[in-house]
């Protein structure tokens, strides 16, 4: 069942169509990647989900019911353009955001103590925000996003500004949140983290959905025509009508070759072709990275 659904959402700013009939369906307890090049309409869609702006047409559902203004209390949002009041003390500021999300002061204090301890930030409580490093500020913001235990959490580029250690901490927290039952919409340009974290994705370009589905299915679907071969020794492979060579590298006495097969050519035919050239160590269909898929899909549309 979908926790969140957007149906046929359209949003226009003057003559510019930011979203054109976009639909997404986010299954419960999944990490859902919202991808797209800059200016594709991701932020607009996220703002509509957060009810910061309203759609011109289209309907939004949370838990099967129409999205209502009070639902902001069950949604957590970490925007890409984020910041804190620089002159405020860390603790006070975290408390302020928690209260804006409807938590009582006492409850907010209790949860903040837990999270500050868990993320090793207890010493920062009375420091001014401007005294913190960028990464430290990001941690504070991460906590304020999830403190009210939202059912739906939207992270827009959550890893920018973090060093690898902290990025890993945050990644584990995100996975932990999902385990505890939260559903996560995750917008990023970092395709490696999409492969690592996301179950489903939607790719938006110029306000339109151009690709959607489960990450593994998408990768398998796009894998069809490419193969990775490893030969013993430095060998010469002859291109023919069945395949083209995309790249070849020789390392440690082995040749790694990447092929692109022509359409309607079976794996057996290619194997047959290449076996004559030398001793095959391995032969694999190459799963394209999300990065490649992203670039190819977007470029084919432009």
């Amino acid at each position: 069942m979908s926790l969140f659904e957007a149906k046929n959402v359209t949003k226009q700013f003057g003559d510019f169509k930011a979203l054109d009939d976009v639909s997404i369906s986010v299954p419960e307890k999944c990490i859902y990647g919202l991808l797209g090049p800059n200016g594709a309409g991701k932020t607009t869609l996220i703002r509509i989900i957060n009810q910061i702006t309203g759609p011109d047409s289209g309907t939004l559902f949370l838990n099967g019911k129409k999205l209502m203004p009070e639902d902001v209390l069950t949604i957590g949002y970490l925007p890409e353009e984020r910041g804190l009041y620089r002159k405020m003390k860390v603790g006070e500021e975290a408390l302020y955001f928690a209260q804006l999300k409807g938590l009582s002061k006492a409850e907010a204090m209790k949860r903040l103590r837990y999270w500050f301890k868990k993320l090793e930030m207890v010493d920062w409580w009375n420091k001014k925000v401007e005294e913190l490093s960028k990464g430290m500020q990001q941690k504070v913001q991460f906590i304020t996003t999830i403190l009210h235990e939202p059912k739906l959490i939207i992270f827009d580029e959550p890893f920018t500004g973090f060093d690898p250690v902290n990025a890993n901490t945050i990644k584990n927290e995100i996975l932990f949140l999902r385990e505890r039952g939260a559903t996560i919409i995750f917008s990023t340009h970092n395709m490696a983290s999409v492969e690592e974290l996301c179950d489903n994705i939607t790719l938006i370009n110029k306000g339109k959905t151009i690709l959607e589905g489960r990450v593994d299915e998408i990768r398998n679907k796009w894998a069809g025509s490419e193969y990775e071969l490893v030969f013993q020794g430095d060998i010469k492979l002859q291109e023919n009508g069945h395949f083209k060579i995309l790249s070849q590298t020789v390392e440690n006495g082995k040749s790694a070759i990447r092929l692109s097969a022509a359409t309607d050519v079976s794996t057996n035919e290619i194997l047959n072709d290449v076996m004559k050239s030398g001793k095959v160590i391995s032969f694999n269909p190459a799963l394209p990275s999300m990065n490649e898929i992203f670039i190819r899909v977007v470029e084919s549309r432009n």
Partner: peptide, 13 residues
């Protein structure tokens, strides 16, 4: 300071 977008996700502008 870009704090505004966080706030308007909790309250109306």
């Amino acid at each position: 300071s870009r704090v505004v977008e966080v706030i308007v996700s909790s309250v109306k502008p």
